Amino acid sequence: MSTSIKHFGASSDFLSKHRAQNPSSRTILVTGATAGIGLAIAKYLLRSEAKHLLVLAGRNNDVLIDLQTKNPDRVVTTAGDMSDLDYVKSIISGLQLAGKLDGMILNHGTLGSCQRIGGVEAEDWEKTFRINVTSLVVLIQSSLPLLRSAQGKVVFTSSGAAVTAYTSWGAYGATKAAVNHLAMTLKNEEPEVTSLSIRPGVVDTAMQDDIRNKYLGNMDEKDQQKFISAKKDGKLLPAEKPGHVIAELAVRAAKELSGQFLSWDDPKLADYQAK
């Protein structure tokens, strides 16, 4: 793994100059940035007149290269697997951020093997927790000094599965419940940092394709029908709808939202939703 330090722009002093010239610009890390909600978030933030600076992490290096090529000064990328905690630790340590990070959008995650509790392998269960929970803790630990300095925002992409049980989704739902608790704990332990978790709804992403095409056989019929009909009846949300709310929260979430688990379309978030 390379030990070289990455920086924005062509030189190491670009970041301080950019911040001075663009006081509304925020430096934000987005994980799971190469598809679905994460990609929608990245594109939205890059279109902003505030000229935000983005650290983008994801598995698809081709997408990362494309985003960086189109935004050479404002994007730094890091490709890797969030189950590899050494890689996760390197994300922040490998960057020159000049003392602060304004926001983190922790959007990556996996459904796991979608096995019922009676048949799931312990290794599969543990790996789902490593990707969906432990990697978040590792990232937060390495970022806290930078987040405190900026009075930054941490936004977690959670799920309705945190509070509703679906057959064969035990590991996934448990991890998302843990994510919500992590946001609550951060609110108490890190008062300078605003932390909240967002339920994005049923979104038209590759995860929904996997549910319909790979995992339906392990689910009860009533749960199967929910996801089949959501696609058939055109009820899946475009990634941009929850993505844009999450992006706005990473930029300017109000302190009173800290610790809460909210749906993307909750009335409390009206100020962050597209008008």
Rank of each mutant, 00 (worst) to 15 (best):
P200W: 00
L139P: 13
L146N: 04
G160C: 09
R47N: 15
S195Q: 09
L139Y: 13
A274F: 10
L56Q: 07
G152C: 02
G38A: 11
N213V: 12
L249S: 01
S229A: 13
V163M: 07
I65S: 13
Y166P: 00
G217F: 00
T110N: 06
D204I: 01
L262H: 03
G234E: 02
T3K: 14
M1F: 12
K222S: 11
W125D: 12
D102I: 06
L64S: 11
I92P: 02
R74G: 04
S25R: 03
A79C: 15
S2M: 13
Q96W: 08
M1G: 14
L67N: 09
N60K: 14
S4I: 15
Q208G: 05
N188T: 14
N218W: 04
Q260H: 05
A270G: 14
W169T: 01
S135T: 07
T194F: 01
G58E: 10
A10R: 12
K222N: 10
N107L: 02
G259C: 06
E248Y: 03
K235R: 14
Q115E: 14
R26L: 08
N132G: 06
L139S: 14
N60G: 03
L46T: 01
D233C: 02
D124M: 02
A178R: 02
D265H: 07
N60I: 08
F129Y: 12
L262M: 06
F8W: 06
